[in-house]
Design a protein around this nucleic acid. Structure first.
Lengths: 195, 195
DNA sequence: CGGATCGTTGATCAACTTCAACGGTCGTGG
DNA sequence: CCACGACCGTTGAAGTTGATCAACGATCCG
């Protein structure tokens, strides 16, 4: 958990007192997942927010033809959840699973809302998360309606190189909203031009 | 402002006390815009959050060729801002202007953060806004990478009919990420099939 | 070693864009 | 108040982009 307190201090500029550590200790539960193991399956209700402390995961939907569409990637220090299902208590349309062996810290809905009022640092952390999430979402939406497939890929290489290194190409393609073949050809073009 | 207190109570289930009304009264400033008037221009820093009390607005970027790309529409009871610019204090890449004559309630960054700690209802309102925003963003991203142009349009007709009625077709097209001609043809198809 | 998965490549096909032209409507200035 | 210009939606034709289908080699893992 020490790395977690460090994480909180880093994002909130608030040190965590030892009483607060006690409270956090009880609210967050560690969990381990093997590669390919589900954290959430379509139809489940998402009961937890999960902070990745080690590993790599993805959130995706599956269409009628079996095609997968990646909504979100996550690695160390990213939070994973189906926000819609978590907040509304509705069955999820998404799957979340581990792409690498993964370690998490999980917190349930009630504890999450309680801690936000009890611990100032958690309030700030939440606001910070929401802020970053809002900014990132706006960027991705803008990219989706504005950029071509190639531009979206190059943009991702710049802003999210870690994802490109740790996830296979077909998942990257499904995140960009293009077919794996198209991504393969785009990379070839870009490489021939000299990256 | 009475409608605003009503708005807060509706979304937070917290009535606003008369002392709180005083505080809110000083923090929020009414503003009127004529049709086509800018609220924010590219390069400006977005200093306010604006709640639309009457009218219709849009947020959009302009590319090198002069093409417009609509990121967000807003009508009564929607908040408008470039969240990235507002939170980070960075120059905006977007324009926001009025499509109809519009009335707003505006609040600045410092007041916004102060009220979130001083007034419980504002804390709840903020959390609710962020929650809704997160859910809506996830949906739109998923639609963008999953659905065809026609499916995105039909989805928008279902979930946002007010926008389709109040904004012209070329703006709807730029919101969906397709050309105005394509949208025209899609509508013709859908109409011939019987809506 | 054998099967599954992944990335690549080619050929064909579908979706969407672009360019151009036209008619209708609306707002504005003379 | 009318006439003109600007803008909008529509339609057609041609051009691009990306999807699909199929085949193949490489790699990884059991």
């Amino acid at each position: 958990m020490n790395r977690f307190y460090e994480y909180i201090r880093h994002y909130t500029a608030h040190p965590v007192t030892s009483q607060e550590q006690d409270v956090l200790q009880h609210a967050f539960r560690p969990k381990k997942l093997r590669k390919r193991q589900y954290l959430l399956q379509e139809g489940d209700i998402c009961r937890h927010l999960s902070l990745i402390t080690k590993g790599a995961m993805r959130q995706y939907s599956v269409d009628e033809k079996g095609g997968e569409h990646t909504v979100q990637f996550g690695i160390e220090n990213w939070w994973m959840s189906d926000r819609e299902s978590f907040e509304l208590g509705s069955p999820s349309k998404y799957n979340i699973d581990a792409w690498e062996d993964t370690e998490l810290l999980q917190i349930g809905y009630d504890d999450w809302w309680r801690l936000r009022s009890e611990i100032p640092a958690m309030r700030i952390l939440t606001a910070e998360m929401d802020k970053r999430h809002a900014v990132a979402s706006q960027k991705r939406i803008h990219a989706a309606i504005t950029l071509t497939a190639e531009e979206r890929y190059l943009e991702m290489m710049k802003s999210q190189p870690a994802f490109i290194q740790r996830f296979p190409q077909n998942m990257i393609a499904s995140y960009l909203g293009i077919s794996p073949e198209t991504l393969s050809r785009i990379r070839k073009q870009a490489f021939l031009r000299g990256d």
